[in-house]
Each structure stands twice: as C-alpha cells, then as structure tokens.
Design a protein around this nucleic acid. Sequence first.
DNA 1: GAGTTTGTTCATTTTTTCTTGAACAAAGTC
DNA 2: GACTTTGTTCAAGAAAAAATGAACAAACTC
Lengths: 175, 175
Amino acid sequence: MSAISASLDPPPAACVASGSDLTPLELEVIDLFVGATRLIGLPRSLGEIYGFLFISPEPVTLDQLVQRLSISKGSASQGLRALRTIGAVKLSHQPGDRRDHYTAETELKSLVSGFISSQMLPHLETGQTRLGRLRALEESMGSELRPIQRARLEKLVHWHHRARTLAPLAGKFLD
Amino acid sequence: MSAISASLDPPPAACVASGSDLTPLELEVIDLFVGATRLIGLPRSLGEIYGFLFISPEPVTLDQLVQRLSISKGSASQGLRALRTIGAVKLSHQPGDRRDHYTAETELKSLVSGFISSQMLPHLETGQTRLGRLRALEESMGSELRPIQRARLEKLVHWHHRARTLAPLAGKFLD
DNA sequence: GAGTTTGTTCATTTTTTCTTGAACAAAGTC
DNA sequence: GACTTTGTTCAAGAAAAAATGAACAAACTC
C-alpha cells in the first residue's frame, strides 16, 4: 500500500550502495535524501545522487558518482539530467578539465520552485483541459445532474484556480 | 524516469476501469483524481475510489465500488482504509442498512492537513533521529570536516526546523 | 447453530517502475 | 584518420509496488 501508513518505518542506519567506500557522513546524508526523494515520489537514485552532491565539498563528475555510489553510468546520466531539469543540480565546468562537473543546488527557494514548476505546473495545465471537458459534460447533462454534483464540480474549479494562483508563489517566502 | 519530465502526457479521454458502466461524468472526474493521486505519489486505485465518491451524490458501499470500478474487494477495502487514514474519506451509517457507507471529504483544508500529517509528519520525525546521528558524526569528525560541509549540515538542520514549523500550518489558510 | 452478509487479511500474481549495460554519438588527442 | 575520453540512449532484465482472490473473522438472521 505504498507510502500510506508508513510512519513507523524503523530508522535503520544507512543501507545505501553495496560494497562501496562511502564515508559514514556520506551514507547518513544520502540516506536522508533518499528518504526525502521517496516522500515526494522521486526514484531512489535521485536521492542518492543529490545527497552525494550535497555533502561533497567539491564539484563531482559523472564518473565519480558511478564509482562512489556503485550505480551504472546510465543511471547516473539519467539521474543527473532529471535533477538538472528540476533545477536541483547545476553544471559547472572546471578549467582544464573536459568532463562535466556537477554541484547540488542548495537554495531551498530554488529547490521548491524548481520542483513545483517541473512537477505540478504541467499537471495543472492538463487539469485545465479536463475541467473544460467537465464543463461541456455539465452543459450536456442539464437536469440529470444533481445539485450536489454541480456543487462538487464548482469546487473542483475553485481548487484548480486556487492551485494555479498559489503554486507559483510557493517557495517565494522561503530562505 | 517516472514523474519527472512527464508534462507532455497527452490528455486521452478517460481510460479507467474496463467493461464497466461508468458514466462519462464519472469517468472524467475519476480520471482527474487519478492524475492528482499519482502526482502526490498515491496509488491509482485511491484516485479511482476517491473520484467516484467525490462525484457520487449518495454515500457509497464497498460493494458498489467493487462493481462500478471493477476492482477487487481487497483493493476496495484497502483503498478505503488508506483514504480514511489520511482523512479523505468518511464513514457514514445509513439507518436500516448494516453495510458501511462512505463519502468523500471535500474540505480542501481537511484534505491537505490530513495528507500532511499522515505522510509528512512521520518523515519529519525520523528526520529528527537522522539529524541527531549527523550531529554525532559532526562532533566525531572534528577538523576532517570541511567548512562548506559544516555549513551544509547547518542548512539541513535549518530546513528541518522550517518544515516542522510550516507543515502543521499548511492548509490552515485554505477554504 | 447453520447459513448469510459484510468486511479484512495476506500470499500470490500482475503491472509498473527503475536500473543496467551495451551500442552509439560527440568531441578531443595524437 | 585511428584512438581515447566523455556522455547519452534505449531495449531488456531486475526490483518494487499494487491488485487480486481465496481464506478468514465478525456480526447478524432465522
């Protein structure tokens, strides 16, 4: 039954990556972010990657991620791209090094609004379309539609509007 | 890659349940809530059940859910329980009917704070424990810990505190 | 107390999601 | 232009999550 009624998950000392040589600090931080990404419905590997970047004092290359986290090159590449599209990871170029280097975005504001605009806004858009179809149905049904149902549809419209106005603001008030 | 970069999911007219006799209205509303539950990381069946209850003018029995949504009794039972634990569904007893009847909670305020207190608060609790372990590590590392890493750990504590104070407030300002 | 109705639990199956690794592209080096 | 280094893509395999349905419990009916 997934997330629901989880709550009593025991906090077992980090159990990330297999035979790797991550430090206890890295393990603990990664574990924390793995939990966080799962909470917001993102795959585990994103938590691992972000956590590792978060606690790394220096920019990190894809290859380092592969080695330290014991994940495949494919995972690392896809994971980094996903993190970049939500704005949680930044690309930086080290002088004299052809490889891409990555750092964690650690501004809460950016993280939140990046997440919202990449995950929620698209849904709100398609929600717009859906509400349009509902409007049409409402018309076509006339008196078959009970008043309470009409009220519920009204509520949907209201929620949607509320979400569209609030979503872009979230994160604005964080530091 | 899951949710990320979804966005361009085509809005195909409802494609819920198989050979059932759901009305177009029901289909459309269910579809909308299926999208919403997926967004917040809840299983599809919860969206179907909630959507059906949401648009039903009368309280609904478990058996009706099984028949109309073409889901198994097990799914319906578990789904309803999950929805009740997050406070999205209320149990009501119809006089002269032994069966349990269910209605959707449609107060946005209740939905939001129910979701938060059942999904986020538990994680914030275990987060507390994790931060404790990090503190310990921080002590034990002494000067091995680079200043920037120290600052990051500080940031984690700050985020956690921020979340714990904000979480219970979310929903308070909705109507 | 045998039979019925209502609802839950849980091992198994099904479906979905994630990860992998090999093939490929792009760009640099000699 | 052959070879290396860096990174991406995507089909296929592995893992995780969700749905099923049969067995069970509880409460009512006669």
